[in-house]
Design a protein around this nucleic acid. Structure first.
Length: 859
DNA sequence: GCAAGGTC
C-alpha cells in the first residue's frame, strides 16, 4: 500500500479565459459564461505525483475528510487518477480521527464515493463564483471612485468585493451599529434596599426589576418608605454546579482566544496551525465538540503530569481517590471529520514560541483538562423579603469545591457572603432608595459576538470564518477597536444601505441559508445539481440586473454634478465641520429641504429641515446667537395641514441650533431625510449621494461624526444637544418634551402654574401631563389621572439613605395642597387642584382599594 | 483585480 496526499482542493473553478478580464464582458454575462475546473499551477506537482502512482496501482482508496468538501476533493483525485488509469478500483475510507481502531475499521469497511455529496459542493462552488465575480466586478467598477479611503493603498487597487459570506458578516456589524444609532435612551426607576447586620451586608434588588413610569415608581417607593418593616418570606438554600466547557471546537477556540487574550481569529488560526504542524495540538479546524468514546483521554492527561504549572492538577485528575475525573460533556456537534482540539504532545514551552503560541497551547491544554474534570460546586442562598407588598431578593454564594476552576484560570465564580436570615424574621432596611437609570444601547459586536452570529446563521465554515472577518477589515468595510469591537466604515455602511435601499436582502444571512438548504437537498439526492444551479442562478441574475438598474439610479456617475439636489440661493453659514466651505440651502428631487456643506462629498455636514417645509428662502437677517456666523435666517412656509396647531405657516427661523420652534417641528413632524421614516438612523446626504447615515469622512478621513441621537442634527454631540438641554429645563424626564401651552392649574408643590405637555416616551407617547413651570420644582401629574380624580403628586427625586424610618419627608411642602387629605402618605387633588380626602387607587382611581391591592397590579 | 472552500 502506498500513501500520498493532496493539500485540500486539488482543483479550482474558473471562468474561461475570454471572461477573465474585468472589462471583457458585462458582469451579467458571468451567470452563463462557461467555467472550467482545473488544477492550478501551484498544484501541478501534486497532480503529477498522483498520475505517476496511479499508473502503477490497481486500487485507489480515498482517505479524506468525511464531509462534503472532503468528498468533492475525493472526486477531484479520482478525475486525475482515472485520467491515466481507467481500470482503477476506487473506494472511500470513512474515518474521523487518527485512532488505530477507527483506521482499521475504515480499511475493512471501504465504501463507494458519494456523488451527491460531491455534486453539492460543485454547485456551491459555481454559485459562489458567479455571484461573487459578477457583483464584485459591477460594484467595484461603478462605485470605487465614489469612496475616499484613508489608507496608504492606492484607490485604484481598491476592490469592493461581494460574497455570499462576507456580506452577511458585514450585515451583522452594520445592523448592530444601526441598532446603537437608533437607540432612544429611556429613563427607568428601581427601588434598592440594603440591610447591614453584624454578619455583613445584603443588597436586595427589586423583584420587579425596574419601571419606566416615574410616578408609579414613586408611589410604590413611598409605600415602602411608609411601612418599611421587611419580612423575610423565603430563604432558599441549594447546591449549584458550574460545569466545565465542552471539548474545544474551532469556533470556541477563536471566541475564547479573543475573549481571554484579545487575539484576532485570524491570528488564533495562524498560531493554531503552527502548533498543529509541530505536533503539539490536534487538527485545529473542527466543528466537533465531543470526544469519541474510543479516545484515550487518560493517556493525554498522563503526558502532562510533569508540567511545572498544571502537572500537579493532571496528577490529581488521574488519582481515583481524588474523585476529580469526569467523562467530558457532549456539546452536540460532530462534523464526522475531526475530533475536538486537544493537546497531542507535551511541552513546557518551546524557546521559539511567541507569546501567542504559549497562550494558545496553554488554553488548549487547560481546556482539555477542564473538560475531564468535575464541575465546581457552590452553596447558594436566596433570600426574599417583603416591604409593603413589594418583593426584594438577595443572594449569596459560597464555593464548596473549585474542581475544574483550579485548572481553568480563564473562568471565575465569585464568593459573595450575606448574613443569615430565617423565614418570618422582621428587619428594618439600612437603606431604601429610589434610583434612576437610563436604558443603554447594546455594545458594538465583539469578535466573539460576530463569530457567534456567523455560526448561528451558518455563514462560512470553521476553517473560513476568520477569513471572512479579515476580509471585511482588508476591504475597509469595518474597523476593529482595541476591545475587539467592530464598527462599519462609511464604505461598509453605504454598501449595506445601498442593497437595503433596493429592498434586496443580499446583506442578510438568508441567501446563504437558502443555498445551504439546497446544497443539503443535493447531497441527499432530493434535488439534482443542475436543477439547483438553474434555479439559483436564474434568481440571482434577475436580482443582479435589478440591483444594477437601481445602483445606476442611486449612484449616478457624474461626481461633479452628481448631487441630486439643487442649490437655492446663497450661503446660509460657514460650515462648522470642515471649516472650509459654506453650508447652502438645497432642495432635493423628492421636494425635501436641507442645508448641506458645499464641500460635499469631502465634507458631509448637513442639517435636515422639518418635513412640512413647502418653501424656504434665505433672508439678509443674521442670527444674534449662533456661531460660527454669520448664520442667515431662513423664511419658511410650512404646509398648513402637516404642522400641529399653534405653529404658524410662515416662520422666520435659524438653522444654527438656537431655534426652539424648528427643533419642535422636527421632533413632531420629522425631517425630509429618507431613512428616518424607516426607523433607521437618518441619512444626512442628498438622496443620490453615497448613502451614509452620518456626515462622516470629511477631508479624506474615516473619522465619524454621528448625528445627535435626540435632534438628528450634526455639529454637536448627543450629550450636548441643545434640544435636550432646553427640554430638561422644563421637565425632568427625557422624552416628556412637547410643550402644548400653559394651564391655570397651580403646582401642588410650589403653587407656580403648571404647563401642559405631551409625553414622547415609548410607554406613554401622546399622553398629556402637567409639569411645574418652575425650574426648581419637580412636580408633574398625568392629565388623565387628574380627570380620574386620582393622585397627582409632587415628585421629588428621592435618593435617600437611612430614611426608611423617616417617612415624613413627603409631608405637604406645597402651598396648593398643604391641607389636603392624606391616606397612607399619599395626597390627592382634583382636576382643579382642590384637595380630595379619602383613599383612592393610584392605578385605576377606584376609591375602594389602594394601589398595592389593585387587581390590575398583577400584570 | 472577483467567491468560498480546502490546505500549507
Amino acid at each position: 500500500m502506498l500513501v500520498t496526499s493532496v493539500t485540500g482542493h486539488l482543483m479550482e473553478v474558473e471562468f474561461e479565459d475570454r471572461f477573465r478580464k474585468w472589462h471583457s464582458c458585462d458582469p451579467a454575462d458571468l451567470y452563463t459564461a462557461p467555467i472550467r475546473k482545473h488544477v492550478p499551477e501551484d498544484k501541478v506537482d501534486i497532480k503529477r505525483t498522483l498520475e505517476e502512482e496511479a499508473r502503477k496501482c490497481h486500487w485507489l482508496v480515498l482517505w479524506l475528510d468525511c464531509d462534503r468538501e472532503g468528498e468533492n476533493i475525493a472526486f477531484e483525485v479520482m478525475e486525475v487518477c482515472n485520467g491515466v488509469n481507467r481500470n482503477l478500483t476506487i473506494r472511500r475510507a470513512r474515518f474521523s480521527a487518527l485512532i488505530e481502531r477507527d483506521i482499521h475499521e475504515a480499511a475493512q469497511n471501504l465504501i463507494a464515493p458519494n456523488q451527491w455529496f460531491s455534486d453539492a459542493v460543485d454547485a456551491r462552488q459555481e454559485i459562489d463564483l458567479r455571484i461573487g465575480a459578477s457583483f464584485t466586478r459591477f460594484q467595484t467598477m461603478l462605485l470605487r471612485d465614489r469612496f475616499v479611503i484613508d489608507s496608504a493603498q492606492d484607490d485604484k487597487n481598491l476592490v469592493l468585493s461581494y460574497g455570499p459570506c462576507q456580506f452577511p458578516t458585514l450585515g451583522f456589524v452594520v445592523e448592530r451599529y444601526w441598532e446603537i444609532q437608533s437607540h432612544e435612551p429611556e429613563e427607568f426607576w428601581t427601588i434598592n434596599c440594603t440591610h447591614r447586620s453584624d454578619e455583613g451586608l445584603a443588597s436586595f434588588s427589586w423583584m420587579r426589576g425596574h419601571l419606566f413610569d416615574y410616578t408609579s415608581s414613586v408611589i410604590l417607593y413611598e409605600m415602602c418608605v411608609e411601612e418599611p418593616t421587611a419580612t423575610v418570606m423565603k430563604v432558599q438554600q441549594q447546591e449549584k454546579l458550574k460545569y466545565p466547557p465542552y471539548p474545544l471546537s474551532t469556533i470556541e477556540l477563536e471566541k475564547r482566544a479573543s475573549r481571554y487574550f484579545r487575539m484576532s481569529s485570524e491570528q488564533t488560526m495562524k498560531v493554531a496551525e503552527d502548533l498543529y504542524q509541530a505536533g503539539f495540538i490536534s487538527y485545529p479546524r473542527t466543528e466537533t465538540d465531543s470526544f469519541s468514546s474510543r479516545t484515550d483521554l487518560h493517556t493525554i492527561v498522563q503526558e502532562h503530569q510533569e508540567h511545572p504549572v498544571w502537572g500537579s492538577y493532571a496528577q490529581r485528575l488521574l488519582d481515583p481517590g481524588a474523585g476529580l475525573w469526569r467523562n467530558p460533556g457532549n456539546g452536540g456537534h460532530d462534523d464526522k471529520a475531526h475530533p475536538p482540539i486537544h493537546p497531542t504532545k507535551f511541552s513546557s514551552g518551546e524557546s521559539r514560541w511567541s507569546q501567542d503560541h504559549h497562550r494558545l497551547y496553554e488554553l488548549v491544554v487547560r481546556h482539555f483538562l477542564a473538560c475531564v474534570s468535575q464541575p465546581a460546586v457552590g452553596a447558594e442562598t436566596v433570600v426574599e423579603i417583603d416591604i409593603a407588598g413589594e418583593r426584594f431578593s438577595a443572594s449569596g454564594r459560597v464555593i464548596l469545591a473549585k474542581n475544574y476552576l483550579d485548572v481553568y484560570r480563564f473562568e471565575s465564580w465569585g464568593d459573595s457572603m450575606i448574613p443569615v436570615y430565617v423565614q418570618g424574621q422582621q428587619l428594618i432596611p439600612t437603606t431604601l432608595t429610589l434610583d434612576s437609570g437610563i436604558t443603554r444601547p447594546p455594545p458594538l459586536l465583539s469578535e466573539a459576538d460576530l463569530l457567534s452570529c456567523m455560526d448561528k446563521a451558518g455563514i462560512g465554515t470553521d476553517a473560513t470564518m476568520h477569513d471572512h472577518i479579515k476580509k471585511l477589515l482588508d476591504r475597509f468595510y469595518v474597523t476593529k477597536d482595541a476591545n475587539t469591537r467592530f464598527s462599519p466604515t462609511n464604505l461598509g455602511e453605504a454598501l449595506v444601505m445601498g442593497y437595503d435601499d433596493m429592498g434586496y436582502e443580499l446583506w442578510k444571512p438568508n441567501l446563504r441559508s437558502l443555498m445551504e438548504y439546497d446544497m443539503k437537498e443535493v447531497s441527499m439526492g432530493n434535488k439534482s445539481k443542475a436543477e439547483v444551479l438553474a434555479t439559483c442562478l436564474q434568481q440571482m441574475k434577475a436580482c443582479f440586473l435589478d440591483a444594477k438598474r437601481i445602483f445606476f439610479l442611486l449612484f449616478r456617475s457624474d461626481r461633479s454634478n452628481g448631487d441630486d439636489s439643487s442649490a437655492l440661493g446663497e450661503n446660509v453659514r460657514p460650515c462648522g465641520l470642515c471649516q472650509e466651505a459654506n453650508m447652502v440651502l438645497r432642495k432635493n428631487r423628492d421636494g425635501n429641504f436641507m442645508v448641506g456643506c458645499s464641500g460635499y462629498p469631502q465634507c458631509r455636514n448637513a442639517v435636515w429641515l422639518p418635513g412640512p417645509v413647502l418653501e424656504a428662502t434665505i433672508t439678509n437677517n443674521i442670527c444674534n446667537s449662533c456661531t460660527p456666523g454669520p448664520v442667515y435666517l431662513i423664511q419658511f412656509k410650512f404646509r398648513q395641514l402637516e404642522i400641529p396647531p399653534g405653529f404658524n405657516v410662515n416662520y422666520l427661523g435659524c438653522i444654527g441650533g438656537c431655534d426652539e420652534t424648528l427643533r419642535q417641528l422636527i421632533e413632531i413632524c420629522g425631517t425630509g431625510s429618507r431613512a428616518q421614516a424607516r426607523g433607521r438612523p437618518p441619512t444626512t446626504t442628498p438622496s443620490n449621494g453615497p448613502p451614509t447615515t452620518t456626515p462622516r469622512n470629511p477631508q479624506r478621513s474615516n473619522s465619524r461624526q454621528a448625528p445627535c441621537i435626540y435632534c438628528y442634527q450634526t455639529g454637536h454631540a448627543s450629550t450636548d444637544c441643545p434640544s435636550r438641554i432646553s427640554a430638561t429645563r422644563h421637565v425632568q424626564s427625557h422624552g416628556m418634551n412637547q410643550q402644548n401651552g400653559e394651564s391655570s392649574i397651580p403646582c401642588s408643590t410650589c403653587g407656580t402654574p403648571c404647563v401642559l405637555r405631551t409625553a414622547n416616551t415609548a410607554n406613554n407617547r401622546g399622553r398629556k401631563f402637567y409639569s411645574c413651570s418652575s425650574q426648581a420644582c419637580n412636580f408633574f401629574v398625568w392629565e388623565d389621572n387628574l380627570n380620574n380624580g386620582s393622585a397627582p403628586r409632587s415628585a421629588p427625586r428621592p435618593n435617600i439613605s437611612n430614611s426608611a424610618s423617616n417617612p415624613s419627608r413627603t409631608g405637604g411642602r406645597g402651598r396648593g395642597v398643604q391641607n389636603a387629605g392624606r391616606a397612607a402618605g399619599v395626597t390627592f387633588v382634583s382636576a382643579t387642584g382642590e384637595p380630595i380626602s379619602g383613599r383612592r387607587c393610584f392605578v385605576c382611581g377606584d376609591p375602594s382599594h389602594f394601589a398595592n391591592a389593585c387587581p390590575s397590579r398583577g400584570s
